[in-house]
Each structure stands twice: as structure tokens, then as C-alpha cells.
């Protein structure tokens, strides 16, 4: 990987981790791996996201939210000059009950990008159980490109 790409990736990770509020912060997501081939993110177990009183079964909605968030990250990494991005549609299959107190791992990648649209797919499993996927999703995103890229804003003031 080139040095420039690595720098961009580090900045995107920093930007993502420093969001002051909102759901992504609440999910306490940790970026584990980022490249133009895809991203891997960890979500620590959080009893607030469960549906049962024993707090061991995650609600499907949080898995859907996780996929949507990580697709966004995958798009920023894979596509140059994205100014804004909106989810057009999203499909999620819940492959097995999400019953565990383990951390949740998500892998996602942008498998096709055009001027206006990005197509993403991703999978979710519990840490240590990669061969027992709990959910899989695909989504498409409407992109706007322009000078006011989030990434460019970060770059400003950086002489290199």
C-alpha cells in the first residue's frame, strides 16, 4: 500500500473515532483493519442493544445499524472525493440468533463504485466465530462529490 493511501486511511480512522456524538460513538466502534479492499470493525458487547431480560440476545436493528455505519466507512476509504453520502436502500438477512456476550465483528467492502452510486456488502459474526455468520447485508448509496470533501477538510493545513 502506498504511503499516501496509508495516511488517508489513518486520517479517516481518526475522523471516525473523534465524532463527538451520535450512534457511532454510542456503539463504541473500534476500527481493526482498513484498506481499499475493505474494512473490519469491532463493536464491544453492550447490554443496551439486547432484547431479552438476561441481556444475551442482540436486537436485529443494531446489526442493521452496524452494517449501515461500516458501509459508510468502506465508501470513504474506497472512493476519492466523496462530499456526502446517503443510504438509498439496505437489505439484511439475519442468519442465526445473535445470542452471545462476545464482541461483534463486521467486515464490509464497496464492491462497485460509479460517479453517483456505491454498492456495498458486509458480514457480521461474534469474535472467534467467523464461520458462524449472524447477519449479512447489502446496500446502495447515493454519492455527491465536490470540493467540500470531508477528507479534503481534514487535509487542509497539511503541507504534504
Amino acid at each position: 500500500m502506498s504511503g499516501i493511501a496509508q495516511k488517508k486511511i489513518e486520517q479517516i480512522a481518526q475522523m471516525w473515532n473523534e465524532r463527538g456524538n451520535g450512534l457511532i460513538t454510542h456503539m463504541a466502534l473500534e476500527i481493526e483493519e482498513v484498506s481499499t479492499q475493505g474494512v473490519q470493525v469491532r463493536m464491544p458487547f453492550n447490554p443496551e442493544f439486547c432484547v431479552d431480560r438476561e441481556q444475551t440476545l442482540l436486537h436485529g436493528g443494531i446489526l442493521t445499524a452496524l452494517l449501515d455505519s461500516v458501509f459508510g466507512l468502506a465508501n470513504f476509504v474506497a472512493i476519492e472525493g466523496v462530499s456526502t453520502m446517503a443510504t438509498l436502500d439496505l437489505r439484511v438477512d439475519y442468519l442465526r440468533p445473535a445470542r452471545s456476550r462476545a464482541d461483534v465483528i463486521v467486515r464490509a467492502h464497496c464492491f462497485r463504485k460509479t460517479r453517483h452510486i456505491a454498492f456495498d456488502s458486509g458480514s457480521i459474526w461474534f469474535d472467534g466465530h467467523e464461520n458462524a455468520e449472524i447477519a449479512r447485508g447489502v446496500a446502495s448509496f447515493a454519492l455527491t462529490r465536490g470540493d467540500s470533501s470531508l477528507f479534503d477538510a481534514l487535509e487542509k493545513g497539511d503541507p504534504s
Partner: peptide, 12 residues
């Protein structure tokens, strides 16, 4: 709103 929160309310 986060798209995932909207989808979560719909699922609920």
C-alpha cells in the same frame, strides 16, 4: 437520524 435507528424502529 442514523439510517440504522430508522430501520430499528421499523423492525420494532
Amino acid at each position: 437520524y442514523h439510517g440504522g435507528i430508522i430501520a430499528s424502529l421499523m423492525e420494532a
